[in-house]
Write a protein that binds this DNA or RNA. Sequence first.
DNA 1: TTCAATAACTGACCATGGTCATTATTAATC
DNA 2: GATTAATAATGACCATGGTCAGTTATTGAA
Lengths: 205, 205
Amino acid sequence: MSTPGKREKNRRDKQQRITTAAGALFASKGVEATSTSEIARRAGVAKGTLFLYAPNKIDLLFMVMHDRLEQTVDAAIASAPKRKGLNARLLHVFKALYAMYERSGSMGREFVRSLPGASGPNAERVNALTFAFLHRLAGLVLEAQHAGEVRADVVPMEAAQNVFALYFAGLMAWLQGFATIEQALDPILSRSLELQFRGLGATKR
Amino acid sequence: MSTPGKREKNRRDKQQRITTAAGALFASKGVEATSTSEIARRAGVAKGTLFLYAPNKIDLLFMVMHDRLEQTVDAAIASAPKRKGLNARLLHVFKALYAMYERSGSMGREFVRSLPGASGPNAERVNALTFAFLHRLAGLVLEAQHAGEVRADVVPMEAAQNVFALYFAGLMAWLQGFATIEQALDPILSRSLELQFRGLGATKR
DNA sequence: TTCAATAACTGACCATGGTCATTATTAATC
DNA sequence: GATTAATAATGACCATGGTCAGTTATTGAA
C-alpha cells in the first residue's frame, strides 16, 4: 500500500490550492494586476508559502500554464489530420496553440512575453515540455519524409527547430500588436511555413 | 540660425546624462542589480525625472540599447561581403549582432529577454529599428534574387521575416543557456539558414 | 508515549519601482 | 521689466515582490 505521508499530502494539497488561486486571479485580472498577497489569501496560505512553491511571481504563472500547454499539445497532436500534407498538420497543431493563448487572454500574453530566459523550477518544466514538443514536430517531419514529401537528407529535428522558430515569430507578431491571433496563423505563419517548405534557393539543373 | 531654446537644450542634456548613467550602471552591475535611485543619483537628477524620459526601468534599457543596435546594424550591413552568397552575408550581419549582445553582457541578455511585447517610447524606437532591419535583410534577398541565387517567385520581405525568426531563435537558444553565442551562430543559425535556403520539400520531377 | 530532529509554514519587514501634489524654470504677453 | 501661462523637475510617499528569523507540524527513534 502506498503511504503518501502527511507531509507529501499537505504539499500536494497546497500546491493545488495555490495553482488554482493563481490561475483564477491571473485569468480574471491579469498577471500584473494580481498581487501575491491576493493569491496567498485566496489559496488560504501565508505569503511566504507561495515562494516555497515558486521562487517568484512569474514562476507561478509558469506553474499555471504548464498544464494548459501540455493538454493543448497532446490534444492537437492526437487530432492532427493524418491524410494531409506536412504543412497542414503543422498548421493544425499551431492553430490549437494559438487558440489556447487567445483563450488565456492577458495571461497568455504575459506568459509568452516571459518565455525567453525564464528560470525557476516551473520554467524548467515548461522548457522540458517545449523540448518534447520539438520531438513531436520532428516526428511529423519524419512521417512526411517516409511519405516522400520531405527530402531524405533533411534532419527532422533541425526542421522541427526551424518550424518552431517560425511559430514563435507568429506569436511575437501577435504580442507586438502587429497582427491578431488569426492573422498570426493565417497569413503570417502559413506563408512562413510554405516558404520554409519550398526553400529560397533557385533550383539547380 | 537655429534657436534650440533653453528647454530643448536642457532636455537633451538630461536625456544624455540619464542614458549615460543608466548605460554605465547596467553594463557594470546588470539591470536587476541597478536601482532607479542609483541611476538618478548618478545622472544628477531626481528619481521622478527618470520617469519623464522613460515610463519604466526597462524602457531605460531600451533607450541605452537603441544606439548600440543601430550602430551595429549599420556597420554590419556596410561591411557585408559583396562577393559571397546570401547565407554568408546574412551570417556576417548576424554575427555582428550576436557579438554586440555578447559584449553587452548581462545587459544584452536582459534586453533580448525583454524584447517580446515591450512597450514605451524607446521600445517603439527599437521596434522601428527592427522594422528597418527587416527591410535591409529584404534588400540582401533581392540582390541575391537578381544574381539568380534566389528563386524569382520569393517575396523578399517574407524571406527576410523567416530569416529573422531563425536569428531570433538562435538568440533564444543562447538566452536559455542551450548554447554559447558562438554555437548560436555556428552550428545553430548557420544550419537553420541552410535549411531555409534549401527547403524541406522533395524536388518534384 | 516522549522527545529530538527535521521540514514546512508564517507574517512582519525591507528594498525598490513607480506616482503625483508641489515647487521651480522657461516661454509668452503686455 | 513685470505678470501670467505652460512646462519641467522634485522627492516624500505608496504598493508590491520577495526575505527570513521565529514558530508550528511531522517524522522516526528510544
